[in-house]
Structures are given as C-alpha cells and as structure tokens.
Write a protein that binds this DNA or RNA. Sequence first.
DNA 1: CGCGCCGTTGAGCCCGTTCAAAAAGTGTGG
DNA 2: CCACACTTTTTGAACGGGCTCAACGGCGCG
Lengths: 256, 256
Amino acid sequence: MGKKKAWHEASVPLQCEECPVRKLALFQPLNKTEVKAAHKFRSEVSMLEQGKVIFRQGEICNEAFTLYDGWACLYQDLADGRRQILKFLLPGDFFGFQTDFGTGVRAHSARTLTGASMCVFSGGGFLKLFKKKPALGIRLTWMTAQDQAVAHEHLASLGRRSAKERIAYLMMEIFHRVRERQGEQNKDNKVSIPLTQDHIADATGLTPIHVNRTLKSLRQAKLVELQGNELQVPDPDALADIAGFNWDIFSKPSVI
Amino acid sequence: MGKKKAWHEASVPLQCEECPVRKLALFQPLNKTEVKAAHKFRSEVSMLEQGKVIFRQGEICNEAFTLYDGWACLYQDLADGRRQILKFLLPGDFFGFQTDFGTGVRAHSARTLTGASMCVFSGGGFLKLFKKKPALGIRLTWMTAQDQAVAHEHLASLGRRSAKERIAYLMMEIFHRVRERQGEQNKDNKVSIPLTQDHIADATGLTPIHVNRTLKSLRQAKLVELQGNELQVPDPDALADIAGFNWDIFSKPSVI
DNA sequence: CGCGCCGTTGAGCCCGTTCAAAAAGTGTGG
DNA sequence: CCACACTTTTTGAACGGGCTCAACGGCGCG
C-alpha cells in the first residue's frame, strides 16, 4: 500500500513528433510539418520532484506547459494560509497559458503532486504561432472553454453541494479522467491516484478531518474505496448519481 | 427607492459600426472594414424582458451573444432546485460561446435580470471567422482565459472564504465592474445594481436569510450600504481588504 | 528506534441553515 | 385613493453540518 515510489519517477519527454500524449493536448490537430514547427517552438523540457512549485501566484511569468508525465495541480493561497485547489493536472494537460495581455501576473500557483516532467513553451511566441496556425488558436480556445465549464461545475459543487456530494463528485471526476487516459479499462474499476486527504480537502473546500469522515461513510455505502494510492469505484453509475455528475462536460471535441 | 422601472427599458442595439459597447467586447480589435464583416456576421438582435431565459442547460444551441444593454446572469440548476449563479453579465459581455466542438449541449443556463437587449451570433460561423481574422480568435481566447481567472477567484471564495468575505468580495467585484464601465466616476461611491438578496445568495452559495444578516453586519461596519437598487461602498480599499480582492484579475488587455 | 507524515476517531462548538412569521415595498385593478 | 396580492427584506428561535481542538495509531524512512 502507498508505494509513493511508483509515482516518483517521471519519464523524459520525447520529440514532439513521437509524443504519446500529444493526442490529448493542445497540439493534437497538427499534421507532420506543423508538429515539427511546434517542436521548434518548445523551448525546453523540465523535470521536477514531487511537491515542487512550477510557478507561483504574483509572479510575472509567461511560460506555458504541457504536463508530460506525473500529476500536478493549480491552486490559490489566501493571505492567512487557507488554500483552494483549482484543478488537478494529468498527463497531456496544457496549463499556465496567459498571453502577453494584461499585467502578466500569475493569478494562481502550480505545483507537482508527484515526480513530473513537462514541456515548456515561452509565452511570447503564441501570438505569432496562432496567426500562422488559426486551428491552434481555436483549439486553445476550445480547451479553455472546456476548462471553464469544469470550473463552473466546481463552482456549483462548492456553492451548493453537501460534503458527501462534493467528494463523490471529485472522486467521480478523477476516476473518469484517469480512465479516459488509459486506453483499455480493467474491469475492477480501480485507478491509481496520488492524492492525500489533505489534497481532497483543499479541492472540495472542506477540512481534512471532515473529508476523512465523509470518505468513511462513502466506503460504508460501498460507493468509494480509497486506500493509499488506489481508488476503487464499485458502481460508477451510482456514484455519478449521488454526485450529480455531468458526463457531457468531459467529452472530447467532435470537430476540428 | 427601488425604481425597477428604470431597469426595465433596454435600448435597441445599433449598427456595429457605431456600437458604443463594442470597445468592451469581443469585436474590439477590429478596424473599419472588419467591423462591417462582423456586422454582417451578426444574425439578429434580441430584446427580452426581465427574468426571461436566454438559453437553458441541456439545450443544444450554438449561438453566442453580446449583451448590449441591461443585466443578465449565467447559472446552473441542480436537480432538486438548488441554484448557483456562475457569473453576472453586464453590457459588453460576450457569452454563450461554445464552438461546434463537443456535444454542443449547454452546460449552464442564462437569464436576464432586467430588461435587456443583445446581439446574437450564430455559432457555425466562428470557425471560418477566426481563420480569416486570427486576432479575433486570440481575443476570444484572452477573454475566456480572463473569465477563467475570475471563476478561479470565485472558487477560492466559495471554497475557503467566510460568508462575510464572500459577500464583501462580490460587492467589491460588482462595484468595480460597474464603475469600470461608466467613464466618469461620481465621487459618492454609489452604483446602481438590479440584484436582490436572493441573487446574492445564489452567487455566494448562501441562504438569503444569512445574506441579509451578513449585509446588516457589513452595513453596521460602514463597509457596504445596499438598499434597493443602490449599492454604496464608502471605503473601497477597506472593503477590498477584508474581501481579499485581487485587482489584477480585472485589468484589461495591455496588448493586442 | 525515533521522527514525521498521514489517516483515524472523539468531544464540543459555531457558522450558517431551517422553519416560521411579520414588516416593508411594488404592482394591479376598482 | 384604497384594497389586495405578491415579492423582497427583516427578525426570531432552534437545529445541524462541518469546524476546531486534541489525541492516537500506522507506516516509511533515516
């Protein structure tokens, strides 16, 4: 149980041409020559250990990233130490984009949850890139809009759902996102996740203590089994039901 | 006090060429000939009374809108009637954009809070439009990213802030957005808003009763004076302070 | 072995809720 | 102008979900 080691080693990103996560990511809609251009555009590759800050709110920094391997999260800290996790990042997720517009000040922080590797793109080039490749701009807009829809769903969770519903929702979402990424799906409804109950608390706006109690009640109801790195959802439909889970939001683009 | 009538009459949108709110909106970065193209792109103009639904979650509908006059909001309803307001819309706000990608199912609803008028753009055309005018695509991406930042700030509010802080934050935000839109700023720190305490409750994730009590305490602390349609913020800096208000987020693009 | 991190459990309190009702403001028709 | 219905705001009283404070147990690691 809790083999953190398994999460600790992230693999090194390949050339964009051969990248296995590209199909999930921003640069999905490219043809061969375009991918080469994207590869030139990539400024560097970064590898970080577990728990390292990628960027911090308040910093001026215009880089954007594609998470290649491992987990990370976006979060916001209030002045007195309270923390809200805004989004969990999985391999293929593109994050940190903010154009040269505005002040360029980061509104939130990012940090790794496991050992992680990512591709770094310097912010300055996006404007030119999108002028040359409008399809990319449209794709980015679509991704941002989808992020928006997810954030809205989370707003409804934090604003109007009970602790049980919120945690059910989060577990359902993570379960779904992880499975989506692994092609073949094992029948036992188990996925591996690196989250502590503290993380869950910071994402759901609850205290770790109450997260613990709520998980206990979900376990007793045979809806969620979470021990160590292993999340099991015996009956996804039942869980989705009490979570009020909206499947539509997490669908992929049908056109591009 | 409470002259709802003043809010009830929305003016009719003009030709895009002469539109006074365009400078706030999606089509800001256009030159003269481009604006003409946008005007052709606009499919119709819509006028609605107070409290009318613009679109509903679950619907399949690909139109997008620019609010021309009046107020509206985006919201989400849970199965049992709980409601979460996701965003208040003011004149110039562009909303309802979702490309032909994905299922095209609306993830949230929109409704007018006052009599309102808006310009309607059919969804199908955006792809072509952005291919021709990448600057527009970039602008839309920037706007979506900014919306995202605001939504994140709201997530932190709902997840980690107390009732007093949440309401202080919302009042501060609305106050700021309204003032931003009116060029010259009267010195009495008053703005006109059409929100009921029920709306505030649905936006902050509280009950109307508790909103009332919290507003009372803010009034006694001389931080927020809200009666009828009139919101007064005697000391914006003090209010921003207890709200943990982040001014950066609401800044305008410096480059395009 | 000792230390730190994480998960677990208990007891009591408080913020925000629920239920209930009255007061104030708004709109309609006679 | 008043009577009436309806919506919005205000207040009271009591409940409860989630929080705070506190302690203990398990596991990995030096």
